[in-house]
Design a protein around this nucleic acid. Structure first.
Length: 108
DNA sequence: ACTCTGACCCAAA
DNA sequence: ATTTGGGCCAGAG
């Protein structure tokens, strides 16, 4: 097989996914936080991009990633699914669509 | 090459 | 609470 050179974009994506994979159960991290942890400061959008490209059925804890302030960023059925999973992990919501970051933010 | 569109973020207004 | 503007940047057309 032709040895595939991994593009820098692929490596970046891998770092993002690995960081998401490291969020412990019962915690949430923000897009910006993930970017920061992955060594990609100010590139929160890239994190959202990587997650939106995730194949359905992925094992990654994508539901532990929320927008700034604990806001659920996804819409529609995905939002309900995320909420369902977070509730199942014992997270508390201040209002529908907003998790209490102060209580369960991931501290790497 | 260029424009549009986002699972984004933040400070200001 | 909402909007605006700047930052950031990969894919799609």
């Amino acid at each position: 097989m032709k040895p595939r050179r991994e593009s820098s974009r692929d490596l970046t994506r891998e770092r993002i996914l690995a960081t998401v994979d490291a969020i412990p159960r019962g915690c949430v991290a923000t897009y910006g936080q993930i970017a920061e942890e992955a060594g990609l400061p100010r590139r929160a959008r890239l994190v959202g991009r990587a997650l939106s490209d995730l194949p359905s059925g992925s094992r990654l804890p994508w539901h532990r990633v929320v927008a700034a302030g604990g806001r659920i960023a996804v819409k529609g059925s995905a939002a309900r699914e995320q909420r369902r999973r977070l509730v199942a992990e014992g997270l508390r919501f201040s209002r529908p669509g907003r998790v209490e970051l102060g209580r369960s933010a991931w501290l790497p």
